[in-house]
C-alpha cells in the first residue's frame, strides 16, 4: 500500500526533535509549519478520506458507512478495465510523442537558439497564458466535423489514408477519436516536457561537444555518448511532469473524445455524480489511479537508474 507509506512519513519527521533534546531550535519547525499544514489539509486528509470512502457502502440519501466493501475495487477492474486501459494508453502515447517532439525542439533552442533562446522559450510557454479549458474548447471547434482542418483534409483527398491509419473515423470525423484526445493532450502538455529538457540541455557546456568531436565522435555519436546521458535528468523530469498529469487527465477525453474514448477520469466523474453506490466506486478508482501512477513512476525512475534524481 503505497498510500500508507506516504501517510506514515510526515509524523515521523515531526517527532524528530526528541532525537536531539539538547539542541532545540524551534525556528525550522515554525518555518515548516505552513507547508506541513497545507499537506495535511489538502493531501493527507483528502487521501485518507478517499481511502476510507473506497471501502464504504451506502447512498447519498441513507449515508455511507465503512463496511470494508473491497468489492468496489474489483468492480473497477471488472466493469471499467477498458477505461483504465485507455488512461494508460493515452498518457503513455502522449508522453512518448511529447518527448519525440519536445527533445528536438529543446535541443534546437538550447544549442542553436543563440540570442533568440529566451524569446523562443517564451513562445513555448505562451499558450499557457490562456486557460487550459479555453484552449481545449478551441481545439474542439478546430477539429470539429465542419472545422477547416477536416475540410482541408477532405480537399486534399487524404481522408481514406487517414481512415486506414485509424486517425479518422469511418464517417470522416476527427473529433471523438483516440487521435484527437491524444492530440489535445500532447498540445496541452508539451511545454511541461520542453521546459525541463531545455533546462538540462542548456546547462551542457558546448566545449564538451568539441571534446567529443576531438575524440572521434561524429555528430550523432556526440549526441549519443555526451548530450543524451547529460540530458537524462531532463528527460526523466520531463517524462514525469507530462505523464503524471496526463494519466489523470479527463478534460481532453471529455471534450475532444467521444463515448469510445472514456478514460478513468471520465468514469470517476460519472460515478461521483450518480447517487447510488457512486462515491465509493469513484473513490476506489481514485485510489487505484494514485497508487498506480506512483508505482509506475517509481518503477520508471528506478529503471532509468538515476540515483542523482532521488
Amino acid at each position: 500500500m503505497s498510500a500508507a507509506t506516504v501517510q506514515a512519513a510526515p509524523p515521523d519527521a515531526l517527532s524528530r526533535p526528541e532525537d536531539h533534546p539538547k539542541k532545540r531550535n524551534i525556528l525550522p519547525y515554525v518555518l515548516l509549519a505552513p507547508g506541513v499544514l497545507w499537506l495535511l489539509i489538502f493531501f493527507l486528509i483528502p487521501i485518507f478520506t478517499a481511502i476510507s470512502a473506497s471501502v464504504q457502502t451506502g447512498s447519498l440519501d441513507m449515508g455511507f458507512k465503512v463496511t470494508w466493501n473491497w468489492a468496489n475495487y474489483s468492480t473497477t477492474f471488472s466493469q471499467y478495465s477498458t477505461e483504465v486501459w485507455h488512461s494508460l494508453e493515452y498518457s503513455v502515447a502522449c508522453t512518448v510523442i511529447c518527448l519525440a517532439l519536445g527533445y528536438p525542439l529543446a535541443y534546437f533552442i538550447a544549442f542553436r537558439g543563440g540570442r533568440w533562446k529566451n524569446l523562443l522559450m517564451a513562445l513555448v510557454i505562451a499558450p499557457a497564458f490562456t486557460s487550459f479549458l479555453i484552449r481545449t474548447v478551441a481545439w474542439e471547434t478546430l477539429l470539429s466535423d465542419h472545422g477547416w482542418i477536416t475540410r482541408v483534409l477532405m480537399d486534399l483527398k487524404v481522408t481514406n489514408v487517414m481512415v486506414h491509419l485509424g486517425l479518422l473515423t469511418n464517417n470522416h470525423q476527427l473529433l471523438n477519436t483516440p487521435f484527437s484526445v491524444i492530440f489535445g493532450m500532447v498540445y496541452n502538455f508539451l511545454p511541461f516536457t520542453v521546459l525541463p529538457l531545455y533546462t538540462s540541455l542548456e546547462k551542457i557546456d558546448p566545449r564538451l561537444h568539441e571534446a567529443g568531436r576531438d575524440l572521434f565522435c561524429s555528430g550523432f555519436k556526440t549526441w549519443r555518448y555526451i548530450t543524451w546521458p547529460l540530458s537524462l535528468p531532463g528527460v526523466i523530469a520531463g517524462t514525469l511532469l507530462t505523464f503524471i498529469p496526463a494519466v489523470g487527465d479527463y478534460v481532453n477525453a471529455y471534450m475532444l473524445g467521444g463515448p469510445n474514448t472514456h478514460v478513468i477520469g471520465t468514469v470517476i466523474e460519472n460515478e461521483a455524480l450518480r447517487d447510488v453506490f457512486g462515491y465509493p466506486i469513484a473513490s476506489a478508482m481514485g485510489v487505484i489511479l494514485t497508487a498506480g501512477t506512483l508505482l509506475i513512476v517509481l518503477g520508471y525512475v528506478k529503471k532509468a537508474g538515476s540515483e542523482d534524481l532521488l
Binding site: E210, A211, R213, D214, L215, F216, C217, S218, I226, L230
Partner: peptide, 20 residues
C-alpha cells in the same frame, strides 16, 4: 578532414572532461 577523423587530439583549456 573532419575533426573526429584527424590523428590529432586536444587538451582543452578548461579540460572539458565529461562530467557523467
Amino acid at each position: 578532414t573532419k575533426p573526429y577523423k584527424r590523428p590529432v587530439n586536444t587538451v582543452f583549456q578548461n579540460y572539458a572532461l565529461f562530467p557523467h
